[in-house]
C-alpha cells in the first residue's frame, strides 16, 4: 500500500462533507418527494444524523490507516476490496449519469452525454493516479468556494413558499420505503474507508463548521425545496439549482446561480473522484498495481454512462433496481466490520 491516501484531519472532514452532500441536494429531494411527500425532509434529517455517526466511525478507521492498512489481514483486505468494487461501480454509473444529466440540461442546453463523460472521466482518472493527498490539497482551496456560495445564498436568499408544505408526515412504512428505494443516494462511506487521516489537533473551529455543514446542509436544502414547491416538488429537477433561481440579486443581475452551479460541479467531481480512486485502489489490491488500470476503467465507465445509462430514467431505474440492496448492505456493514477488525487489531497491540 502506498501512502498517497494520507491526509490531514481537516481534509478528511472536507472529503466527508463533499462526499455526503453532493448527490443529496440535486435529484434526491425530488425522488423523495415523489416517494414520501412532506416526510422527505424528516427522512433526510434522520439519515443525516445516522451518516454523521458513521463518519465518526470512518474517522476512527482513518486514524488507524484505513481499510487497506498494512496492519490488517490480507484476506480481509481482499474481501473488502471486492465489496468496494461492487459498490463503487454501481455508484459511479448512477452518479455519473446524474452528473451528465445535470450538465446536459442545466449548464448547457442539450449537450450530448458523450462529450460530458469525455471531459469528466479523464479528470477522475487523473485524480486516481495522483492520490487522495493531492485531492485533499485541492479540496482545501475548493472548500472555500463552496463555503462562500453557501454564505452568499443564505445572505441573499429570497424564499417564497408556505410552511404548510412541510406537513403532514406520512406513515413510517412510507418513510422506510422511501429510504429503501433510494439507499444508493444515502450511504456514502466506502471511499472514505480508504483514507488515512492525521488527528484533528489543529483548526478545531474549522472542523466543527464542516461537521455542522455536513449534518444540516442536505436537510436544509430539502426543507427549502418543499417549502417552495410543496406537492409540486415532484415536477422539479435539480433542487439546489432551482432554489437559487429565487435570489435577491437575481432581480439586479438577471441571474445569480453561477456560484451554485460551480460549487455543485466541484462537489460532484470530488465525490466522483473519491469513488474512482476507491475503485482503482481496490482493483489494485486484488490484481496488483498496474498503470493501465485507470485508463481501462475510464473507457469502461464512459461506455457505461453513455450507452447503458443514457438518460435520467435509465440511471434512476438502475439505482433503484435490486442491486441497491447489495450497495446498501456493503455501505452500512463494511465500515462496522472494518471498525471491529481495526479496533481488535489495535487493542491487541
Amino acid at each position: 500500500m502506498t501512502d498517497d491516501n494520507k491526509v490531514y484531519a481537516s481534509q478528511f472532514l472536507q472529503f466527508a462533507f463533499m462526499s455526503t452532500v453532493a448527490f443529496k441536494v440535486l435529484m434526491l429531494p425530488k425522488y423523495l418527494a415523489i416517494a414520501t411527500g412532506a416526510t422527505s425532509w424528516l427522512i433526510m434529517a434522520v439519515m443525516s444524523v445516522i451518516e454523521l455517526g458513521y463518519l465518526a466511525l470512518l474517522y476512527f478507521i482513518s486514524l488507524r490507516g484505513g481499510v487497506y492498512s498494512d496492519a490488517l489481514p490480507t484476506a480481509f483486505k481482499k474481501i473488502a476490496s471486492v465489496a468496494i468494487i461492487v459498490c463503487c461501480s454501481v455508484k459511479l454509473c448512477v452518479f455519473g449519469g446524474e452528473f451528465c444529466s445535470y450538465v446536459g440540461t442545466s449548464v448547457f442546453d442539450g449537450v450530448n452525454w458523450l462529450y460530458i463523460a469525455l471531459a469528466l472521466v479523464p479528470c477522475l482518472a487523473y485524480v486516481a493516479t495522483r492520490g487522495l493527498n493531492s485531492l485533499g490539497r485541492a479540496c482545501q482551496i475548493l472548500f472555500w468556494v463552496i463555503a462562500f456560495t453557501v454564505i452568499f445564498n443564505v445572505f441573499f436568499a429570497r424564499l417564497e413558499g408556505n410552511a404548510y408544505n412541510l406537513l403532514p408526515f406520512g406513515s413510517l412504512t412510507d418513510a422506510v420505503t422511501g429510504v429503501d428505494k433510494h439507499i444508493v443516494w444515502f450511504a456514502d462511506f466506502t471511499p472514505l474507508l480508504l483514507v488515512c487521516s492525521s488527528s484533528a489537533k489543529r483548526q478545531r473551529a474549522m472542523s466543527i463548521f464542516t461537521i455542522i455543514l455536513t449534518a444540516v446542509f442536505p436537510t436544509l436544502i430539502t426543507i427549502f425545496f418543499l417549502y417552495s414547491y410543496g406537492d409540486g416538488a415532484v415536477f422539479v429537477d435539480n433542487a439546489i439549482s432551482r432554489l437559487t433561481d429565487f435570489h435577491l440579486l437575481a432581480t439586479i443581475m438577471g441571474k445569480a446561480d453561477l456560484f451554485t452551479v460551480v460549487s455543485w460541479l466541484i462537489l460532484a467531481v470530488v465525490k466522483l473522484s473519491l469513488i474512482f480512486y476507491a475503485l482503482v485502489t481496490s482493483i489494485s489490491v486484488l490484481i496488483g498495481k498496474h498503470q493501465v488500470t485507470p485508463f481501462v476503467l475510464s473507457a469502461l465507465i464512459i461506455l457505461a454512462i453513455v450507452f447503458a445509462m443514457r438518460d435520467v430514467d435509465r440511471y434512476y431505474a438502475f439505482g433503484t433496481s435490486p442491486i441497491r440492496y447489495a450497495v446498501g448492505a456493503i455501505e452500512y456493514l463494511l465500515p462496522v466490520v472494518t471498525g471491529i477488525v481495526v479496533g481488535r487489531k489495535h487493542a491487541k497491540e
Binding site: G161, S228, Y229, D231, G232, V236
Partner: peptide, 8 residues
C-alpha cells in the same frame, strides 16, 4: 413556482 405548488 407558485403555479406548480398550488396546482399540485
Amino acid at each position: 413556482r407558485k403555479y406548480l405548488s398550488d396546482s399540485a
